[in-house]
Design a protein around this nucleic acid. Structure first.
Length: 339
DNA sequence: AACGCGGGGTT
DNA sequence: AACCCAGCGTT
């Protein structure tokens, strides 16, 4: 009954592939063989669910149909196309990588892809297998769950996972195989209430045999969400605002956004507000309100003030703006009698 | 090895 | 509110 017995491997592979070929969702990146398009899809889907990533994929490819288009675009335009999708370092790395590809040519191997910025083991294996039929096993969150359950492993290490994935890989059809395992994890072998009765692998699955498939693998421990406070100044109006580039290695680093000042532990917001005014030579007008925004790893309570200062304004529509900034700007539009 | 990173979906 | 999502780069 275990997937570890080698006599079952051929059967397991053919059963999963047959299931995939009949049950696979019709996703846009499965309708192309263009390595560029497949690469874009894989980067977009890093820590982003398929349903969300699909819209961005179509929008991004429309804006930048070829790697030459992407390489030639200003970084600002690339970030604009990425707006709202999060993890903006992905967009910056993608842009840099496109410029490398235009100079040196598109990689055709796992090692070649791995050398590009923003391409790690997962993405390199995905592109190499799907676009170039190289036998490389992917390991992502879906694969982790499927393999963890197949072997009833509570805490699969990344080395263990890669070894199991390598051993299972259908080398004759690596692209379909990799997608098949992920598809199973996304649609059948789900985190909660897995649809084991619909699973082509249940006869091989140790977690299913245990009667409690949901227990495998155990949830990863997560860091507690930190609560932080900051003040922001809105200088300008809802169309044109003063924005500054946040330092790299900070929250929303490298992105244009409202000028912010962190409120220290045991500090009054007033103190941070004073620092912000001094730095920008700005004068506060009125307090517009407070915005609460939850990131993955922290919760930001942002006190928003309208202010005046002699600073260059940016047309908001032309630049990418993170959600938390958009929320703050929305306070302007909600303010009665201002405009 | 652990942490930081954004937003959104599901339960 | 907890947990997860077609991870990667930095430290």
């Amino acid at each position: 009954m275990s997937a570890a017995t080698s006599e079952n491997l051929d059967l397991l592979r053919s059963e999963l592939l047959a299931w995939y070929r009949s049950a696979a969702r019709d996703l846009p990146w499965r309708r192309t063989r263009d390595p560029y398009a497949i690469w874009i899809s894989e980067v977009l889907l890093q820590q982003t669910q398929v349903v969300t990533g699909t819209a961005y994929y179509l929008r991004f490819l429309e804006a930048f149909p070829t790697v030459q288009d992407l390489a030639a675009a200003p970084q600002q335009a690339v970030l604009k196309a990425w707006e709202g999708c999060g993890y903006y370092a992905r967009a910056r790395n993608l842009h840099r990588a496109a410029q490398e590809v235009v100079v040196r040519g598109m990689p055709t191997t796992y090692e070649g892809w791995l050398a590009l910025p923003g391409v790690g083991p997962y993405t390199a294996a995905a592109v190499a297998s799907i676009a170039f039929a190289e036998p490389r096993a992917v390991v992502d969150g879906n694969v982790r769950r499927v393999l963890g359950r197949l072997h009833a492993e509570l805490q699969p290490s990344s080395a263990w996972l890669q070894a199991r994935a390598d051993a299972l890989l259908e080398r004759a059809a690596p692209g379909d195989w990799n997608q098949a395992v992920m598809e199973l994890g996304a649609t059948v072998c789900t985190p909660k209430k897995p649809a084991c009765t619909a699973c082509p692998l249940r006869a091989h699955c140790a977690a299913y045999a245990s009667g409690m498939p949901e227990r495998y693998p155990a949830p990863k421990a997560r860091a507690a969400v930190k609560h932080i406070r900051a003040v922001a100044l809105l200088i300008g109006d809802a169309q044109r605002l003063y924005l500054e580039r946040r330092p790299e290695n900070s929250l929303l680093g490298g992105l244009l956004g409202l000028p912010l000042e962190a409120v220290g532990e045991d500090e009054a917001p007033e103190a941070a507000l004073g620092r912000l005014e001094a730095r920008l030579k700005a004068r506060r007008l009125e307090r517009l309100g407070e915005v609460r925004h939850v990131f993955t790893h922290r919760r930001l309570d942002l006190e928003v003030w309208r202010a005046e200062a002699d600073l260059p304004l940016t047309v908001l529509e032309a630049v990418p703006v993170a959600r938390v900034d958009a929320k703050a700007v929305a306070l302007l539009r909600a303010q009665p009698g201002l405009f």
